[in-house]
């Protein structure tokens, strides 16, 4: 019976950041996604406000309440995210770090990878980006690298497929 290591007062342990940044184009991609989220309700409210005069204030107010923080976020957050989002593929694992307010580090070992898919949404295609989805046997263990250059993504998927194809068993 072994008991978990105590850390023995050797200082703080932390996860080192993965080596690679995402493609630079994720910043405009994220920005457009935000705008697509924020703008429709704002536009609807503004349009209604223009048409319905008596309720104008009560329509413009929520429009402003959505628009101002939404636009600020669209302006500032993507750059910030870009600095913290990172990924890395080592010989033994796929490693990714995402988020700022809710940070998340995910590790999926090579030997347990079951499928490697690349996915490209219409917006991603416009920006020349792609997402690589690495799934393991766990329903909750998928690692998504969103925002790679699509050629890099295809290469990466190829490479991962080759490495993991050699793994025997059903990786559970």
């Amino acid at each position: 019976m072994t008991v978990s290591g105590t850390g023995a007062g050797t200082g703080t342990v932390r996860l080192r950041p993965p080596q690679n940044r995402f493609d630079r184009r994720v910043v405009p991609w994220w920005r457009v996604q935000w705008l697509l989220l924020v703008l429709p309700p704002v536009l609807v409210l503004v349009l209604l406000g223009v048409l319905i005069e008596p309720a104008r204030f009560w329509l413009f107010l929520p429009a402003a309440l959505i628009a101002v923080p939404g636009l600020l976020a669209a302006l500032l957050l993507p750059g910030w995210w870009y600095r913290v989002h990172r990924w890395e593929v080592t010989e033994s694992a796929v490693y990714i770090h995402t988020g700022y307010f809710w940070q998340e580090w995910r590790v999926a070992p090579m030997s347990r990878i079951q499928t490697v898919d690349t996915v490209r949404g219409p917006l991603q295609q416009a920006f020349g980006l792609a997402t690589v989805v690495v799934t393991t046997g766990s329903a909750k263990g998928a690692v998504k690298i969103e925002g790679l250059d699509h050629e890099v993504a295809a290469e990466l998927a190829e490479q991962l497929t080759e490495i993991t194809g050699a793994t025997p068993g059903d990786a559970t």
């Binding site: 290591g5 200082g11 703080t12 342990v13 932390r14 996860l15 080192r16 033994s92 694992a93 590790v107």
Partner: peptide
Amino acid sequence: LEFAGEAVPGLLGPFLERDP
């Protein structure tokens, strides 16, 4: 983090670093 590193050696371990 050390718990995770120790539980499955070689999985999370390579990504851990220590502030002296």
